[in-house]
Simulated scan of single mutants.
Amino acid sequence: MDWITGIQKAIDYVEDHLTDEIVYEEIAKRAYSSSFHFQRIFHVICGFTLGDYIRIRRLSLAGRELAESNAKVIDIALKYGYDTPESFSRAFTRFHGSSPIQVKNGAAVKSFSRLSVKLALSGGTIMDYRMETKEAFDLIVKKKRFPKNTELTTVEITGFWAECSKDGTIDKIIRYADDKIFGKNIVGVSFEYEGDDSEFPYGIGASYGGNKITDHDLSVVSIPAHTYVVFQCVGKMPEAFQKTCQYICTEFFPTSEYQPIGLEFEAYPSPDVQNPDYTCEIWVAVEKKK
Results as ranks from 00 to 15, higher is better:
residue 10 A to F: 02
residue 16 D to V: 06
residue 17 H to Y: 00
residue 19 T to C: 04
residue 19 T to R: 07
residue 22 I to H: 02
residue 28 A to F: 01
residue 31 A to I: 02
residue 34 S to P: 08
residue 41 I to N: 05
residue 43 H to V: 07
residue 47 G to M: 10
residue 50 L to I: 12
residue 55 R to G: 09
residue 58 R to K: 11
residue 64 R to Q: 08
residue 68 E to A: 08
residue 70 N to Y: 13
residue 71 A to D: 02
residue 71 A to N: 12
residue 73 V to A: 10
residue 76 I to K: 05
residue 95 F to W: 12
residue 95 F to G: 04
residue 96 H to L: 15
residue 101 I to R: 15
residue 104 K to H: 07
residue 105 N to S: 15
residue 106 G to E: 07
residue 106 G to K: 03
residue 108 A to P: 13
residue 110 K to G: 13
residue 113 S to V: 14
residue 118 K to H: 11
residue 122 S to Q: 13
residue 125 T to E: 04
residue 127 M to E: 06
residue 128 D to I: 15
residue 133 T to K: 12
residue 143 K to D: 15
residue 144 K to N: 12
residue 146 F to E: 13
residue 146 F to T: 08
residue 149 N to G: 05
residue 151 E to F: 08
residue 169 T to D: 15
residue 169 T to E: 00
residue 174 I to Q: 14
residue 174 I to R: 00
residue 176 Y to T: 08
residue 180 K to F: 01
residue 180 K to L: 02
residue 180 K to D: 02
residue 185 N to L: 02
residue 193 Y to V: 09
residue 196 D to F: 04
residue 197 D to H: 11
residue 200 F to S: 11
residue 201 P to F: 03
residue 202 Y to L: 10
residue 205 G to N: 09
residue 209 G to L: 08
residue 210 G to W: 01
residue 211 N to E: 14
residue 212 K to E: 11
residue 213 I to E: 14
residue 213 I to G: 06
residue 219 S to H: 12
residue 220 V to Q: 06
residue 221 V to Q: 09
residue 223 I to V: 15
residue 231 F to D: 09
residue 235 G to E: 01
residue 237 M to S: 00
residue 239 E to I: 10
residue 240 A to I: 04
residue 240 A to L: 03
residue 241 F to T: 06
residue 248 I to K: 01
residue 255 T to C: 06
residue 260 P to T: 00
residue 263 L to Y: 07
residue 267 A to R: 04
residue 267 A to G: 09
residue 276 P to L: 10
residue 278 Y to E: 00
residue 286 V to E: 05
residue 287 E to T: 11
residue 289 K to G: 01
